[in-house]
C-alpha cells in the first residue's frame, strides 16, 4: 500500500475542503473497496479523507419517502424495517451482494462509487484504459466471460458490480451530492455513465463532490418486486446477470413496470422502450418475452460472453414473472422460483 496523508473530517465542509486541497485525495468510509484496490496498487491516493465521523448515517422519513444517508451501512439499509416493508427490492438486492462482514462495513455512498471487478482493471501487469487511460483494453479479445454486453465502447467493456444500484435504478432513486459549487441532485440513471472515450470516469460525480444521501421516491412497489441474481456460485459472487423488477398491477393488467439489469453494462441497464411494451398489457409470459427480446436485441457480446445474451433474456422473463406473481426470489433459499 502506498503512503498517504490522513485527514479526519469533522464536518462535510471540512471533508470537501480536505479533498480539494490534497493531491489525488480520496474520501474513505467503509474502505472495503478502496483499501482492497490500494493493496493492488490500483488506487494510490496521496491523501485519504476519513468521513466516518460525519453525521450522514441516518435513514430518515422525508415527504412520505426515505432518505438514506451516504454513511448508512449496507446492513443497516437492508435490515431497516421501513426499507424491508416499503422497498423490499432494495433490501433483497443488498442482501444478494457481498458477505455479512462486508455489508456491515460498506456504506451506501461507497456502494454507489465502487469500482469494476474486471480482472484487467485489478492487474497492474495488463493494459486497462480505466486504470491507466490510453494503455488499451485487455478484456476486448481477452478473457471477457464476466464483461458487458450493453453500452460498451472500443475502450472498455467493464461492468458496474453493484447489486444495490440495480434496485435503485428500478426504483428511480436520486443521489444528493455537494461540493465547492454547492448541492445538487442526480437521478440514479445519470449518476453512473457509459465508458465511451473516458472509461476512467465511472460516474458523473466530480472528484471534489461528496455523496450526502440516496433519496428514494414514495412508490416502493412492495407488492410486486424481485431481485433475481445469477452467478457462478450461490453466495458471495458478483452477478453474471441480475434483474431488479418492480410492477404495479390492475387485476392482471400491468399498470406500471420497471426493470434494471446488473452485470451486463458499465451502469445499471434499463431500456425504457422495452419497459413501455409492458404497459397496459396482460401480465403473461408472452408480454414479458416481448420486452426481454427488445432488450437483448441491442446486445453486443464479446468473444466469451455470448451466453449472457440468452441468460439475460431468460432472467428478464423470469424476474417479471416473479414480480407479477408476488413471489420474489429468496436470497437464502437459492432455488429459483
Amino acid at each position: 500500500m502506498n503512503r498517504f496523508d490522513y485527514v479526519r473530517a469533522g464536518t462535510v465542509e471540512e471533508a470537501v475542503q480536505a479533498v480539494a486541497s490534497g493531491a489525488n485525495a480520496r474520501f474513505i468510509a467503509g474502505g472495503t473497496n478502496l483499501v482492497d484496490l490500494m493493496k493492488y496498487n490500483v488506487e494510490r491516493p496521496g491523501r485519504l479523507v476519513d468521513i466516518t465521523r460525519l453525521p450522514l448515517d441516518r435513514i430518515e422519513e422525508r415527504d412520505g419517502a426515505l432518505r438514506i444517508g451516504a454513511l448508512a451501512t449496507n446492513a443497516a439499509v437492508a435490515y431497516d424495517e421501513r426499507v424491508k416493508d416499503r422497498y423490499p427490492v432494495l433490501s433483497s438486492a443488498i442482501l444478494a451482494g457481498a458477505t455479512g462482514q462486508l455489508r456491515n462495513a460498506a456504506t451506501t455512498g461507497g456502494n454507489l462509487l465502487q469500482r469494476t471487478r474486471c480482472y484487467y482493471f485489478y492487474d497492474e501487469g495488463t493494459p486497462c484504459n480505466k486504470r491507466l487511460p490510453g494503455s488499451g483494453c485487455g478484456a476486448i479479445g481477452g478473457v471477457n466471460r464476466i464483461h458487458a454486453i450493453f453500452g460498451t465502447s472500443d475502450k472498455c467493456i467493464a461492468t458496474h458490480p453493484s447489486d444495490m444500484c440495480v434496485a435503485l435504478a428500478a426504483l428511480e432513486a436520486t443521489v444528493r451530492v455537494t461540493g465547492p459549487s454547492g448541492e445538487r441532485t442526480i437521478p440514479l440513471a445519470e449518476f453512473h455513465r457509459l465508458p465511451g472515450d473516458e472509461p476512467e470516469r465511472d460516474t458523473t460525480l466530480s472528484a471534489d463532490e461528496i455523496v450526502l444521501s440516496v433519496d428514494l421516491p414514495a412508490e416502493g412497489f412492495a407488492g410486486h418486486y424481485t431481485y433475481l441474481k445469477l452467478r457462478d456460485r450461490l453466495s458471495y459472487a458478483f452477478a453474471l446477470v441480475s434483474v431488479a423488477a418492480v410492477m404495479e398491477l390492475d387485476g392482471q393488467t400491468i399498470k406500471a413496470a420497471r426493470f434494471a439489469l446488473g452485470g451486463v453494462a458499465h451502469k445499471p441497464w434499463r431500456n425504457p422502450e422495452a419497459e413501455g411494451l409492458l404497459l397496459g398489457k396482460p401480465a403473461t409470459r408472452e408480454t414479458f418475452a416481448a420486452a426481454a427480446d427488445r432488450v437483448v436485441s441491442e446486445a453486443t457480446p464479446h468473444s466469451e460472453n455470448g451466453f449472457k445474451v440468452e441468460l439475460a433474456r431468460r432472467a428478464i422473463v423470469r424476474a417479471l414473472e416473479q414480480a407479477a406473481a408476488g413471489t420474489p426470489q429468496s436470497q437464502t433459499d437459492k432455488r429459483i422460483a
Partner: peptide, 11 residues
C-alpha cells in the same frame, strides 16, 4: 494526536 480537519503527513 488527530485533530479534525488537520492533515497528518504520510510518514
Amino acid at each position: 494526536l488527530i485533530e479534525s480537519g488537520s492533515p497528518i503527513a504520510a510518514d
